[in-house]
């Protein structure tokens, strides 16, 4: 009788414990992947590069420090972040509604920038617009870029209004 009393609970326990193998043997752990995305870069073309009236046969330069004539961009992003600056420069200005061109050139010192510690007359640094470069945004996350250039009208340059796009592309470098 005592044997029976002992065997029965043993069998019940065995069924409970071994009846559904595999279920008890699983364990899960959950973690989070986390990331904080910082603010995007913004860039505004604030001022066109204006050569004004050009006389055929006479080259005309606009200096990057020339307020009201030099091209100007305003950039904003994460304070202190390094950004790349990449200019896409035209080799000619094109007469509106035609294919007539007028040569334009940008020298290795024709662009400059301020990170808030300089201004157009005394910029933070000089940029060669003919290749990519990298600079840090200022303490407020701002940067202003200026560009000058020189046009070379021919003696027989057709009269009229000439234009071309000057593009500045900026991107975070991640540094």
């Amino acid at each position: 009788m005592k044997k029976k009393l002992l065997v029965l609970p043993v069998l019940i326990l065995a069924l409970v414990l071994f009846g559904s193998p595999g279920v008890w043997a699983q364990e899960s752990g959950i973690i989070q992947a986390t990331a904080t995305v910082l603010s995007s870069l913004t860039i505004i073309g604030n001022h066109d590069l204006q050569f004004g009236t050009v006389t055929p046969g006479i080259n005309k330069a606009v200096d990057k420090s020339s307020v009201g004539f030099a091209g100007e961009w305003l950039i904003n992003g994460v304070a202190g972040a390094e950004i790349s600056l990449d200019f896409t420069l035209p080799d000619s200005l094109i007469l509106v509604d035609s294919t007539v061109g007028m040569r334009v050139n940008f020298s290795s010192t024709d662009a400059s920038y301020s990170d808030g510690t300089g201004n157009q007359a005394t910029p933070t640094g000089v940029i060669n617009p003919n290749g990519p470069s990298a600079h840090d945004l200022g303490p407020a996350g701002d940067m202003t870029v200026w560009i000058g250039g020189t046009v070379y009208p021919s003696i027989s340059q057709t009269g009229g209004d000439y234009t071309a796009d000057v593009i500045l592309t900026v991107a975070y470098t991640g540094s």
Partner: peptide
């Protein structure tokens, strides 16, 4: 868009 992004990763062992 700036901000805090999250995702859940689950590890299951058997």
């Amino acid at each position: 868009i700036p901000g805090d992004y999250t995702a859940t990763i689950v590890l299951t062992v058997t």
